[in-house]
């Protein structure tokens, strides 16, 4: 389930890390003391990460039938998944979500980080905290809040529609429900991504700006030639986390479902499908298969993003 080359490629992205490895090589290579520190983490990790992955791989090659009980079926579950219209519909939906929501959110986050870092903003720290605050709000509360706001009966949506005299805003309608979910996710995570970018901007040495100013570079030139290149690693990481978040989409649609049950099906996203298969349908083996397919798809896309990020860095 995990790819072994991707993480090492990621490791090389940190500047300081390559240098420290060279430094460490000078010391004796057979030194077990590091395990004092890494051991406890790895023990729990094996129980909570590796064991479930192996267990779900194991589950995914079996099927429980009314006649004959549990049988080894090889890749039958995987074949079923790739021809299952419900799964494909959900996978298509999260892909569409990813293609639209992630660029919008990251562009907003990047613009905000550059604005806060530009030193041309009055009260920059207020903006930083204000934008990040939604991240501290539990996802359930965020969805409940926006769900109420969206509601035509007691929310702001109803107020705005009354004001305009027509049902202009209709978040709970087929064309808009995915946008409504995208808005909640953007609201929750835009500040978090802004902070990742902002932290990376803060590591740019002052001398670089001074040198750029000496060369007569203006604000935009500085952004293009110094800030954006310095942000490459952070952008790659933020993109990977956002992709993971999109593919995992569960909380927001699952909670909104109680407000709009006719618009959000039980297989709206692959994660909701896997959840409903295992808890309502008792189809444990097939649920494990869906989880694995989505995990592999996520890892592959994350790997591709990482490779692209690296290639740009080498240029």
């Amino acid at each position: 389930m995990t790819t072994s080359t991707a993480p090492l490629a990621g490791a090389r992205q940190g500047r300081g890390i390559a240098a420290s490895t060279v430094q460490e090589r000078r010391r004796s290579p057979r030194d077990w003391r590091g395990w004092i520190f890494v051991g406890p983490f790895m023990a729990v990790f094996a129980l909570t990460f590796l064991a479930p992955v192996l267990y779900s791989l194991f589950l995914s090659v079996f099927q429980t039938k009314l006649i004959g009980g549990t049988q080894f079926v090889g890749l039958d579950n995987y074949v079923q998944a790739f021809t299952d219209p419900k799964f494909l519909e959900g996978a298509g939906r999260v892909t569409l979500f990813l293609a639209v929501q992630v660029p919008v959110m990251l562009t907003l986050a990047l613009a905000a980080a550059l604005a806060i870092d530009s030193r041309r903003l009055a009260g920059a720290s207020f903006f930083r905290i204000g934008l990040f605050l939604p991240y501290a709000v539990p996802g359930v509360v965020a969805v409940l809040m926006w769900g109420f706001i969206y509601s035509p009966r007691m929310g702001l949506t109803g107020n705005i529609n009354d004001l305009l005299g027509a049902d202009v805003l209709a978040p709970f309608s087929p064309p808009w429900i995915l946008v409504a979910i995208g808005n909640i996710v953007t609201w929750e995570f835009v500040g978090y991504n802004m902070l990742i970018f902002y932290a990376a901007l803060r590591t740019i040495p002052e001398e670089l700006y001074e040198a750029a100013a000496l060369d007569g570079a203006g604000q935009f030139r500085t952004v293009r030639s110094i800030k954006l290149p310095a942000l490459r690693g952070a952008i790659t990481i933020a993109t990977i986390f956002s992709i993971i978040g999109s593919f995992q989409l569960f909380n927001e649609p699952n909670i909104l479902r109680s407000l709009a049950p006719s618009l959000i099906s039980t297989y709206y996203t692959p994660n909701m499908y896997a959840y409903n298969l295992s808890f309502l349908g008792q189809q444990v083996n097939y649920a494990a298969t869906i989880a694995i397919v989505m995990g592999v798809a996520t890892a592959v896309i994350a790997y591709v993003v990482q490779l692209r990020g690296m290639r740009r860095e080498q240029r």
């Binding site: 389930m1 995990t2 790819t3 090492l8 590091g34 990460f49 995992q248 989880a291 989505m294 790997y303």
Partner: peptide
């Protein structure tokens, strides 16, 4: 620290970042 198996720990743990947590929840 440099220790035997360090590269393996890197590979497994950083690979795990790309594995969706919720994909693990059901298993």
């Amino acid at each position: 620290f440099v220790f035997p198996g360090k590269r393996g720990v890197f590979a497994v743990v950083l690979g795990a970042i790309a594995v969706p947590g919720t994909a693990l929840a059901v298993p």
